[in-house]
Design a protein around this nucleic acid. Sequence first.
RNA 1: CGGGGAGUAGCGCAGCCUGGUAGCGCAUCUGCUUUGGGAGCAGAGGGUCGCAAGUUCGAAUCUUGUCUCCCCGACCA
Length: 444
Amino acid sequence: MRLSRYFLPTLKETPSEAQIASHRLMLRAGMIHQEAAGIYSWLPLGFKVLQNIEQIVREEQNRAGAIEMLMPTLQPAELWKESGRYEAYGKEMLRITDRHKREMLYGPTNEEMLTAIFRTYCRSYKELPKILYHTQWKFRDEVRPRFGVMRGREFLMKDAYSFDIDEAAARRSYNRMFIAYLNTFSRMGLQSVPMRAETGPIGGDLSHEFIILAETGESAVYCHKDLVDMPSPGLDVDFDGDLQALVDESTALYAATEDVHDEEAFMKVPEEKRLSARGIEVGQVFYFGTKYSEAMKATVTLKGGGEQAVHMGSYGVGVSRIAGAVIEASHDEDGIIWPMAIAPFKVGIINLRQGDTDTDAACDQAHQVLENAGAEPLYDDSENRAGAKFARMDMIGLPWQLIIGPRGLKDGVVELKERATGERQTLSLDAALNLLEKQCVRSE
RNA sequence: CGGGGAGUAGCGCAGCCUGGUAGCGCAUCUGCUUUGGGAGCAGAGGGUCGCAAGUUCGAAUCUUGUCUCCCCGACCA
């Protein structure tokens, strides 16, 4: 993509409303545009990131055996009256009345809707187990939205719902999502730590929040240090096999958020391994049994006759929030540092002397070769001076910068800079293009 | 929802106390010079001062109301 044809409204100055790094950088890098408190337009660069995140989530959901669908943003109030949550949800729920005076709402989540779908079509134990998911915009009318997309009112969320015959089977679904989440975040270059979370009225140990450690995290967290560099299970996991051992491995060590923190248990962690930090929740897995299926009469017939309310769980990933969380976890004074997997472009080509015949030609060639190879280049062909181009490229944080100028070309070389480390190497254009193809093209 | 702060050009801000032709920096446009880490000079365009009432000869400035945004807290993916 040529920058001159793209839409990338970057800002040199920081808008005054942005307090934390990710919010500031998303505005400055031209990723988002605020429409109202907690509501954002996603400009092209931000939208690419959002799509990359969504796609990784999708691939890992599918790999774990979940089935994708799509439910609407607007829901009829009746569903929520059935479950009792229409009253319980309070002012956070955005209620709307249509022209026929029917009560509607902008969905904050979809348990009711999917439970209603399930009960309509699935009547037998033979239909189980099932995990269905979608990625859709939600709305929660937070009293006080903040931190940009990390805590907006409108947000994009992947939510999955599992249906099983009993608690033991529900645990297997839970485990699938648990492992899928570890892989999902790992693929995005994020080290996630599953932490015990509040389970609500159901009790038990079946709820975990997936936390990314970051200084600006919204909640205090406590965990065993070894969890911070525990490898993810890997994409070759057999999701049809028994995942319990893998889950146990990830949950054996102490890890809890503020809400459920147990100081006594934490003290049993060797002192040098105790980590108390702040974290951002990017996902949550939750088993809630028959809470909705009973209220909404989602039952299946049993093998031996009789009926059973299905055991359910729900599994959320904050897709739009992750865009902010990644930046919180990965930036420096100069700007964003995108992990390769979700970077909006993989390499930025910097033309140091726009208008110089040789430099223009070399840049054009690099651009074309990388574009054709699928390395997703962004070519800064603007008339700006070198310094401005460097600064902007650092800010938007593409993993690689290919720097081409007349000075180097005289000696037949270009410069390649890795954003994360700042390391530069000088090499021939061909060698640079070869290296970039290896680094930036996704092999599948 | 309690407490605090702010709305003046696309962005960042001054002006308000003490009413009298609306300013600065960045950005944008034109020209010349410059060209490897956010260039220099010269010029130009762009604002019903959030909105509404009121006071006044006269309101960005004073008064009242209202809307919006931000911060701290409570709440939350």
